[in-house]
Design a protein around this nucleic acid. Structure first.
Lengths: 245, 245
DNA sequence: CCGGGGACTGGCAGTTCTTACAGGCTCTCT
DNA sequence: AGAGAGCCTGTAAGAACTGCCAGTCCCCGG
């Protein structure tokens, strides 16, 4: 009873605590402490695609043993790691022991366990504009024990991870002077068809306007989006969530 | 004390209950019931872009008064509604009363309140491949009271919404026989540059290969992706998360 | 050792884009 | 009523893309 009540209370408070932290390092510590209370030893946050921050390289924050992190990076395991690949495609958090592994991936997992990293849960984080991050928590517990921890705390970890990501993303996206780009309905429509591979002439037929007018709208969209050709315009519009197919 | 414990228990159980439901209608009722327990009157789920299901039209599930739903759809309010637009760009759940409103949007809100829809929280749901849905919960309470409800249940509603979406998405995506498309490193590289608006010639310069070879890789990628031109190839590759810029 | 696949290169006809120029029509908000 | 925004249309030349032909080199697994 008491434990449940404490748990319920922690739930809100831990997240509220996260939201008040000011620095990346403090955020890391606060998160690690919360996880320790739940019985989880380590976590790793990988912000792999954070368009709002304008970075192309990933943001990695980890509490794993240094030696393992180094080994992992030196061997570019992130290119192969089943956890990362699953994160890209999944929506809900997943336990590592539920993943199907190819030989190379199995090897990575067993190397990890030499560093006592035995069980884990990863939270895929997808945001607008193709934003993507992955927050993994890991423990030295055997799978069965870890599962018991998760039954108690899975959703807690899930929500905390989402807020953690939001905080990191805000911290790395300095001046939010991103004045909202708005496409006119026609522009959005034309770009949307373009994204499906239609030519200007075809779109003209579809919308009952001349090819020339289609080109005109695309030009305007390119202007607004600040790009130099159709491809880029379509990609950027999608990234900004401006198209509705 | 007792309330807290009950709340903590509900938290897990409500979600587990959701996950066992078999039909869309039952899911709707289960979710509505959970929300009623929290003091929330209505909810609306809009699956606006569900690529896994192969649908282009949105999936809308609502418990709003029929009359309001009809009015909303007939007037295409979803094109203007501040809630929908914010959902596209936001990552975390947001209260409606925190949104900046333009005149038209203000009008929609006040029309809604004539149907007693006074306060609301919307949970943006972004998934892999540009998947997007929005789950809004609403109440007839004034803003201050509703905020109190949220302080207690915000995260609960958040997580439930994510699982709700996952369930809906699974139900509408029949047989997951989507054989994984894999691009060769070179193909991914070339498409990635293309998505940034580079021409084939420019990419050739960047990679130190001939323009012709760039075109060759793009052709192969188009084959693998089953599309007819560059635009479509880039868009599809992004949607499938095959590019890493 | 041979087949298959990936990376690479060339040419050429036809299609589509890009980017100039120039103009008109209809809304809404002030 | 006028300003601004959105929408619509035309011509034209050069750049870029598409689709189909052809071929070499290298590595990996059977």
């Amino acid at each position: 009873m008491d434990a449940k009540a404490k748990h319920g209370k922690d739930y809100q408070e831990h997240i509220d605590a996260l939201r008040e932290v000011q620095s990346v390092a403090a955020l890391r510590d606060a998160f690690a402490t919360s996880l320790k209370n739940l019985g989880v030893s380590w976590f790793t946050y990988g912000g792999l695609r954070l368009p709002r921050t304008g970075r192309t390289d990933p943001v990695i924050i980890t509490t794993y043993p240094d030696e393992w992190s180094r080994h992992y990076n030196e061997n570019r395991y992130y290119e192969t790691d089943a956890v990362v690949r699953s994160g890209f495609q999944n929506f809900l958090p997943f336990r590592w022991d539920t993943l199907p592994l190819r030989p190379k991936q199995k090897r990575i997992m067993s190397e990890a366990s030499e560093f006592k990293i035995a069980s884990g849960l990863s939270v895929p984080i997808h945001g607008p504009s193709g934003e993507f991050a992955l927050l993994s928590v890991a423990s030295e517990m055997p799978a069965a024990d870890f599962e018991r921890v998760l039954n108690e705390s899975r959703h807690h970890i899930h929500v905390m991870s989402l807020y953690y990501h939001a905080m990191i993303n805000d911290m790395f996206a300095p001046d939010q002077t991103v004045e909202a780009i708005e496409l006119s309905p026609r522009e959005a429509e034309v770009l949307s068809w373009t994204s499906e591979g239609k030519t200007a002439w075809e779109i003209g037929e579809i919308l009952g306007i001349s090819e020339r007018t289609v080109v005109f709208h695309i030009e305007n969209a390119k202007q607004k989006l600040g790009v130099f050709n159709k491809n880029q315009a379509v990609v950027k519009a999608i990234m900004l969530g401006l198209l509705k197919p």
